[in-house]
């Protein structure tokens, strides 16, 4: 078994004259849950479609489970579970008919997990697909992606449409799959969707990977919004020059700021006054996209 499950090198994909991927480099290691984050239209789905041999690269190399997707063909895809970003299934079939169809396409693989997984997610197996709500359709997509216990799960915006309880169930399922030795590659346009389970995260913007980081490092970089209320009037100068502190606003008894990195300096400065209340909330990583990655194009 190779330790690198997905490898892309200088991967370029053009649609006509439009360059969708501009040299993507990726390495996803065996057993990790890898987040693939970027705004809509950044090239997430294009990358995924190259992994599944729906698209062929314009140039560059791509390998999945040690094989080129086109050369690996059906045998390679039998070891992949895929959840599309926009799940479309014929409305006339019931959920059960769809899932049994997928089992047949996989030569019978996964038949024994169909019922248990469907039950776990509360899939209404005997309803026509067109009659299902968005969330219920998504559950069918989740079951078909996981039921044959694939070595690699490729999930495009997986939790969209799932209610919070089922998102929890879904994340548990992901962790179980990893426990069983699977590798997970999941894309999202919001980091919140992957930050709870992902180890490393790649950020893609305009067809280029701009960053690959541990999710905790990213979280740190995004920082926290902190607020203090004091028992006395404090002044801006008491907190000026502290490292990692930006957007500092001090008015009367209160302070608000954005903190990145260690809170030590801020807490010690605050402790010199009477602290009535305080709060720190994680800044959404969307805001990270906003200020950190939405840099103007240098080209």
């Amino acid at each position: 078994m190779t330790s690198v499950v997905i490898r892309a090198e200088a991967l370029v994909k053009d649609y006509g004259s439009v360059r969708a991927l501009r040299g993507v480099d990726l390495e996803v290691e065996h057993g990790e849950i890898f987040g693939f984050i970027g705004p809509n239209g950044a090239g997430k789905s294009t990358t995924i479609r190259l992994l599944l041999d729906l698209l062929r690269p314009t140039s560059g190399e791509v390998e999945v489970l040690g094989q080129n997707p086109a050369a690996g063909g059906p045998e390679l895809r039998s070891r992949i579970g895929y959840l599309p970003g926009e799940l479309a299934m014929s409305g006339n079939r019931t959920a059960r008919e769809h899932l049994e169809y997928m089992v047949r396409l996989r030569g019978g693989s996964g038949a024994n997990r169909l019922e248990p997984l469907a039950e776990r997610f509360g899939v209404e197996l005997d309803k026509q697909f067109r009659g299902l709500s968005k969330g219920n359709k998504q559950k069918v997509g989740v079951v078909q992606a996981f039921m044959h216990s694939p070595a690699l799960l490729i999930l495009d915006e997986p939790t969209s449409g799932l209610d919070p309880l089922l998102q929890r169930e879904f994340l548990d399922l992901l962790l179980e799959a990893r426990e069983a030795g699977a590798t997970v590659f999941m894309s999202s346009h919001v980091l919140r969707e992957v930050e709870e389970v992902a180890g490393r995260v790649a950020i893609i913007r305009s067809g280029e990977i701009v960053d690959v980081e541990n999710v905790r490092v990213l979280r740190n970089r995004a920082g926290q919004h902190v607020e203090f209320k004091f028992g006395e009037v404090v002044s801006q100068e008491d907190f000026a020059g502290l490292s990692g502190l930006t957007d500092l606003e001090v008015t009367g008894h209160s302070l608000s700021a954005v903190l990145r990195g260690s809170p030590d300096g801020l807490l010690k400065a605050a402790a010199r006054h009477e602290v009535v209340s305080w709060s720190a909330s994680n800044l959404d990583l969307e805001e990270l996209f906003m200020d950190f990655y939405r840099m103007p194009d240098e080209t």
Partner: peptide, 17 residues
């Protein structure tokens, strides 16, 4: 065009089949 072929294409089935 309507996307219903996507899962079939991602399954262990060749385009030829």
């Amino acid at each position: 065009e309507d996307g219903t072929l996507e899962l079939e294409l991602a399954s262990p089935t060749s385009r030829r089949a």
